Structure formats: C-alpha cells, structure tokens
Simulated scan of single mutants.
Amino acid sequence: MFIDVIRDFWASTGFVALTWQQLVMLGVACLLLYLAIVKQYEPLLLLPISFGMLLANLPLAFLMGEPIYEIGKDGLPHVKQYGGLLYYLYQGVKLGIYPPLIFLGVGAMTDFGPLIANPRSLLLGAAAQFGIFTTFMGAIALGFTGPEAASIGIIGGADGPTAIFLTSKLAPHLLGPIAVAAYSYMALVPIIQPPIMKALTTREERRTKMEQLRPVTKTEKVLFPIIVTILGALLLPSAAGLLGMLMLGNLFRESGVVDRIFKTAQNELINIVTIFLGTTVGATASAEKFLRADTLKIIALGLIAFSIGTAAGVLFGKIMYIASGKKVNPLIGSAGVSAVPMAARVSQVVGQKENPSNFLLMHAMGPNVAGVIGSAIAAGVLLSIFG
C-alpha cells in the first residue's frame, strides 16, 4: 500500500514528464538569470523574461495552458478547465496592451529637449532604422514569411516593447526568440557598438567637440508631444498606439500640472506592467517553440539588424560631420538605435576616451530619443503593410 502511494505520487510529479528539450530550456533560462543578476545585463526585463521562460518549461505546471471547453447540454461551450495564470496575464501582450503602457512610462521618463534643440538629430535616429529594413529583406531571403521577417527586422531598432508589440500582432509564434534576442542585444550595447563605431570613424572625427545645445523653452516641450502625435498618427495610423502613449507620457512630464499621474506613469505603472510583460513574454519560449533551427537564424539576424542600425547611424553622422564643416561628431549617430539611454552613454564613453574634455551625452540623447520615435514609426509601416 505504502509503495503504491509513493509510486502514484512519483508518477504525478514533473520529474517523470521532464524531457531533454525542457532541460535545455531550463539551462538557457538559468543562464539568462545569471546574466541578469550577476552581470546586470538589462536586469529589469531580462530577469522576468528568463524566469518566465523557466516557468513555462516546468512540465505539468500548466501555467501557460489554455482553458479547455466542453459543450454542455444546452449546446453552449462551458469551461471544463480554466487556463493557467500566465495564460491570462499574457492576454495583455496578445491584445497589444502592455507595450503601449510601457511606452507611456518611457515617455514620462524621457526628455526630448536635446532633440528639440537640434532637430537634425532626427535624421540620425531615422538612419539607424536602416538595419530594420535591411534585415527584413535578409529574412525574406532565408525563407521567412513577410510578417515573420518584419518581426525579426524590428530587433534592429533595439526597442524591446516595439519588438514585442509588432511580433504579437504579426508573428506571435516567434515572440519568445525575438524577445530574448531583442533584450539580449539591448543589454550588450556597450560590447557590440564600440568596435563598429571605431571601425567606421577616424581618430580626428571621434575627437570632435560639439557646441553646447541651446536652451529649450517650456512651450516647445509642451507643444512637441502634441504636434508629433497629430502628425505621426495622421501619417501612420497603425503607429498611433505606441506613438500616442509615448507622447502622452511625455506630456504628463512637461505640462507640470499632473505631477501625481506623471510620477505614477514613470514609477508604479511601468514597473507593474514590466513584471507582467517580461514574465509572460518569457513564458512563450517553451521548448517546442524555441528549440528550432529558425531560432538560431533569428538570433543571428537580430545581431545583423542591430549592427547595421549602428553602422548606418555612424555613417550618416559622418555625412553630417562633413556637411556641417566638422562640427558634428559622428559617434552620436550610433545612439540612433533606441536603447535609451545606454546607447547615448556609449557614444559619450567612446568619445571621451579619445578626448577627455569631450561631452557628447546630451548631443547623443537627441538621436537616441529620435530612435524611439523612429522604431515606433518603422513598426507602424510594417504593421500597415502586413497587419
């Protein structure tokens, strides 16, 4: 009797159902947890994503399981078994709710002053999106469908919420690999970007000092999000969700009249949504969806997208360097990818190594925040084509 009880208990545990594929995924999840906790690579999102991946690959836990229905005597479907916890939380991703809310918080934390003071930096942010469309064509050549290629290409924008938003709309079955790739490369900005920046610029260009930006008035800062929302939504209605929430958050910040909700948007709200978004996106990386040849292609294409975006920004910076009479440091072009504010800090660090008296951070923030707008617009373009 006792042995039968032990045998039945053992048969009900996850150890019996554990496959080698799930063991591999648990190892990948633990590696990402190590990078998030010990190396502190983008921990705010990499930690919940990797733990969500861990939860999704625990057999018999049913955390991402869909509800099961049966037809009742009345001929109508009734719930036989409710879905798992993460399945219901994931609906915020599936329905496109979480990414715009993240953008609301990002807007509340973002100062568009450097972009307003130097509107030319918008061109650098646009140039850095070149990696998205180049990689899109590369993904098509490798056999991915149009919606899949669009979702892979958006990794080049180095904007996690945008990548998740577009992928959830166009290719939800690729959400796990794309989210992991996007946030991994965002975390590796200080490692990936400097060699590209140095390879494409001369020492003289990297030593270029830029003039101090002009002061930006409160009126300009208040009008900016309103004007960008109107023009952006009229041009690309499909981008209105992301762009509108980004600018609403920024208007909370700059108006100065809603201090309470401004603080909520940049603190409590974005933190809560980040937990739900990261954990449920990680939970989509189950063994059967993640351990495929396409995943390796996605990771490789993501790196190419990010590298091309960085290179395009730097090369356009070189054009501006020449056109301005050597007054623009090309290094700020690398910040056109929207990994805010890390990419801008990398421009500052690389420039200061060549010239200790060089302070590029505020100049780099212009193309950096322009990249956030640019990636949202790029997502809108792709969504309008394939959505």
Rank of each mutant, 00 (worst) to 15 (best):
T135D: 09
F136Q: 13
M137I: 15
M137D: 13
A139D: 10
A139I: 12
A139G: 15
A141I: 12
L142A: 13
L142Q: 11
L142E: 07
G143V: 14
G143A: 14
F144P: 00
F144Q: 01
T145R: 09
G146T: 13
G146M: 11
P147L: 06
P147T: 12
E148Q: 13
A150T: 15
A150V: 14
A150L: 10
A150N: 10
A150Q: 13
S151H: 06
I152T: 13
I152L: 12
G153H: 12
I154M: 08
I154E: 01
I155R: 05
I155W: 06
I155E: 06
G156L: 03
G156M: 02
G156T: 02
G156R: 00
G157H: 08
G157Y: 03
G157V: 09
G160N: 10
G160C: 05
G160E: 10
T162S: 15
A163S: 15
A163K: 05
A163H: 11
I164F: 05
I164P: 01
I164A: 11
I164L: 08
F165L: 11
L166F: 00
L166M: 07
S168K: 04
S168I: 05
K169C: 05
K169T: 14
K169W: 00
L170E: 06
A171N: 04
A171V: 02
P172V: 10
P172R: 10
H173D: 08
L174T: 09
L175I: 07
L175F: 09
G176P: 02
I178E: 04
A179L: 03
A179D: 02
V180N: 00
V180R: 00
A181H: 07
A182R: 00
A182H: 09
Y183T: 13
S184R: 00
S184Y: 01
Y185L: 14
M186F: 03
M186G: 06
A187G: 15
A187T: 09
A187H: 05
L188E: 01
L188K: 01
V189G: 00
P190T: 13
I191A: 10
I191E: 02
I192C: 09
Q193L: 07
P194T: 15
I196G: 08
M197E: 12
M197A: 12
M197F: 07
M197W: 11
K198P: 02
K198C: 01
K198V: 12
A199W: 03
L200W: 04
L200K: 04
T201E: 03
T202E: 09
T202V: 12
R203M: 14
R203G: 15
R203C: 14
E204S: 15
E204T: 15
R206S: 10
R206I: 05
R207P: 06
M210I: 13
E211P: 14
E211L: 14
E211V: 15
Q212S: 15
L213F: 04
L213A: 08
L213P: 04
